[in-house]
């Protein structure tokens, strides 16, 4: 049996989603240890990005299925096709992003292939003696890291949190194949009918893909005050997150919630304003690269996970921070001039 790795990528808004490059990069590293190859599978109706790019960034083969019926995500169609590809190509390892779609079709694929699946991994490696995949994931709200193996079943499957691994730099000398797959038409039939997709009008809702998340909690006090957060988010081009208390108060919609019963985010910068830092909130943001906390209570637990803390009134701190960042951007040679 081969030791190939199959990455199931994602095309969103006709673009290859960054998690695809992140996984391809990690798969490359694993494939070097296994002396095997990396295949990336993409399902889409339209893709503006060049598939070569995946080869430049670590793939040996790009397999794609292009069909008008793939314009809107349909878990059943995705499951059918991915199972079919897996049965034919018999990968040793299968990876996909722990996005809302990956977390939907991958468990169904694993069940159909009668194998295990590890959710939301943040670390992957190959065990030298056994050549098995070591899958590490946070457990119990991120307080424990569990390493999991799938010893007797193939493929070994995992979903991986976006932004966990870094894409490889582009190497235009890398060679590979691009292969169109034409699955049986009946695999496109689905009992589930996708009726529509409505984009959330608020541009700042995609907290899982953003480099910067500005989040607020109960400390904001009233819905009118959310504007201070939105202004800061605006100058930082950030997505807006919130604690459950803020969502429960209906100050912002549920898709913005960070934490155990919301989304897990891992941006480069996470700013928590007026959030106490309950375990359930911390579970959703502690893997962020740099955490800034603003809270008037010096004892607030959020400071325990922060890199940078300001003990103070957010109504004083946030507008001032916004103002200074704006000045910085507008300076000659600042970020504004780059575009």
């Amino acid at each position: 049996m081969g030791l190939d790795i199959l990455v199931v990528g994602e095309v969103r808004n006709s673009k290859i989603h960054s998690v695809t490059y992140e996984l391809t990069s990690k798969a490359r590293e694993l494939a070097e240890k296994l002396k095997s190859s990396v295949e990336v599978l993409l399902l889409y109706s339209e893709c503006d990005d060049s598939l070569e790019e995946l080869i430049y960034r670590g793939a040996d083969r790009v397999l794609y299925v292009k069909n008008d019926k793939l314009s809107l995500f349909n878990q059943e169609v995705w499951t059918n096709i991915i199972v079919d590809v897996a049965l034919k190509r018999k990968p040793y390892i299968m990876l996909t992003g722990a996005t809302s779609s990956g977390r939907t079709f991958f468990p169904a694929v694993a069940a159909k292939l009668n194998t295990g699946l590890t959710a939301d991994c943040t670390g992957l490696d190959i065990e030298e003696e056994t050549k098995l995949l070591l899958q590490t994931r946070p457990a119990i709200g991120g307080n424990v890291m569990a390493t999991i193996k799938t010893p007797n079943h193939k493929p070994q499957m995992a979903t991986v949190r976006p932004r966990t691994f870094r894409p490889l730099p582009e190497n235009k000398d890398r060679k590979g194949e691009i292969i169109e797959l034409k699955p049986d038409e009946k695999l496109f039939n689905s009992r589930v009918k996708v009726i529509s997709f409505k984009r959330d009008e608020t541009q700042n809702v995609n907290i899982q893909d953003a480099d910067v998340v500005v989040a607020f909690g109960k400390g904001i006090k009233k819905p009118e005050n959310v504007k201070y957060i939105l202004e800061l988010a605006d100058v930082l081009k950030a997505a807006v997150g919130a604690s459950r208390a803020a969502v429960d108060a209906k100050w912002i919609s549920y898709p913005h919630q960070v934490g155990l019963s919301g989304k897990v985010v891992s941006p480069k910068l996470y700013i928590a304003a007026g959030i106490s830092g309950a375990v359930q909130h911390i579970a959703g943001m502690q893997t962020s690269e740099y955490i800034v906390a603003i809270n008037k209570d010096s004892e607030a637990p959020i400071f325990k996970v922060a890199d940078f803390g300001i003990v103070g009134d957010l109504f004083e701190v946030i507008p001032e921070l916004t103002k200074r960042i704006r000045q910085e951007i507008e300076k000659p040679g600042g970020k504004k001039d780059e575009v």
Binding site: G116, M145, T150, N152, Q286, S298, A306, G309, G312
Partner: peptide
């Protein structure tokens, strides 16, 4: 199919800088 083979306790040691 899956086995937990190791549990570890990550200590996120952040060098927190606190200002007032």
């Amino acid at each position: 199919p899956t086995r937990v083979v190791k549990i570890s306790y990550p200590k996120v040691s952040r060098n927190t800088r606190i200002y007032t």
